[in-house]
Design a protein around this nucleic acid. Structure first.
Lengths: 220, 220
DNA sequence: CCAAAAGTGTTTGGCGTACACCCATGG
DNA sequence: CCATGGGTGTACGCCAAACACTTTTGG
């Protein structure tokens, strides 16, 4: 009477490493889509909440147990022929991570988003939806810091914005904006010269979730 | 091996009628939650796409076949005890509708959002998520016009914004903003005096999806 | 001393708000 | 002629872009 459907959770885990926005993927070694890149995913269990399933997939399939990854629901994909074998409904989650080493045991690797053209199933579309969500999240939330290590400089945070948005920002205006935004950055008192030049102050993530006013990205 | 789960599509259909933002609901006449208000919903079929399922529920269960309702995916709700009888995953859709008569045949009615305090399952939370989505959609898209009839005046559109946001707006600045926004409103050449006073120009929805610049709601 | 990067001060222009004012109808 | 709502002009203030300038390190 009531149709029953397998439901998977698929993760679009993004990070900023080197000069590229990158996604956590693995190379399929079996049909269908053998040799194509795929997102990590898994079927949800009968007694399992959706956020719990996403956290389990992050730990077990993506090989990042306990990592400080911000996870949020992205969208649900359900057209019947997504998977050629059988119908699968997929609840996609977006994860924002600092530059952690990818798990070799789980056969995962970071690949620049721009180079991931041949992906399995509809994973390319899901990933690009996640990228667009991440880009707009940087505008009106403080989640840019989720891409950074626990302590970071304003310049490192600016490089995150520049790479995710794909545009250069004025260092001086950026500095003023983020340091003036209430609850965005907490000074640690320490400094670093790891980027050369005058020592830069180190900050931690502040408690603010939303930015007032937002950091609107330049549009041309 | 792979857990199979029933998946429903639930609709948060909103409109502006009278002086209140209202949702399309029905009163349950069977346990569980007998007598409580509920959103319209239905199980998705095995060969059915998610948008198709939402359109079918809108036509068959909500009693609005063919109505000009803007439908978009809202979020997916999946904690196991949402429904006390059995686990059901629910993909919620948000619908923005003009002030249409509710179908008596489908036992649906419009109820002001503020008065819908006792709702079945987690429908109150789903509805409020939809309300918040609608509020922010008015800021950066042209979807405010989805609440209006095919031809409407600037003042009628302004009242939509005022009721959805729950705040009064300056009529003169609002007029300038929406008429200057590229592709938002198309003049029909006709006028009306149905609101009294000087005749107001009538407009149709323009092709623009996104507003540049956005209509930021006042925050205090 | 010089290069490099952090951080500050100042100018300027665009945009949003507030509000005075005029326009076009019904009664 | 007045009430009512539609629509326009304008001054002011804030904020963000642009950029000159100072500070503090390494070599």
């Amino acid at each position: 009477m009531v149709p029953l459907i397998p439901v998977s959770v698929d993760l679009v885990v993004l990070t900023v490493r080197g000069q590229a926005l990158s996604a956590l993927v693995w190379r399929r070694d079996n049909p269908p889509y053998e040799g194509h890149w795929a997102l990590s995913g898994g079927f949800i269990q009968l007694d399992e909440d959706l956020p719990a399933a996403a956290a389990r997939v992050l730990a077990e399939r993506a090989g990042l147990p306990g990592a400080p990854v911000h996870l949020e629901q992205l969208q649900t994909y359900g057209y019947p022929d997504r998977d050629p074998r059988r119908r699968v409904l997929s609840v996609a989650y977006l994860g924002l991570a600092p530059d952690l080493p990818a798990s070799t045991e789980a056969h995962m690797s970071w690949q620049p988003v721009e180079e991931l053209t041949a992906m399995a199933f509809d994973h390319r579309r899901i990933m690009m939806d996640g990228v667009e969500r991440a880009r707009s999240k940087l505008e009106y939330t403080s989640l840019g810091a989720a891409f950074c290590p626990p302590e970071f400089t304003v310049a490192e945070l600016r490089r995150v914005y520049e790479i995710v948005w794909g545009r250069l920002l004025d260092p001086r205006n950026f500095h003023r904006k983020v340091t003036n935004a209430e609850g965005f950055l907490i000074p640690t008192g320490r400094t670093t010269t790891r980027d050369g030049g005058r020592p830069a102050k180190l900050y931690r993530r502040g408690p603010a979730e939303n930015l007032h006013p937002p950091m609107l990205r330049p549009r041309d």
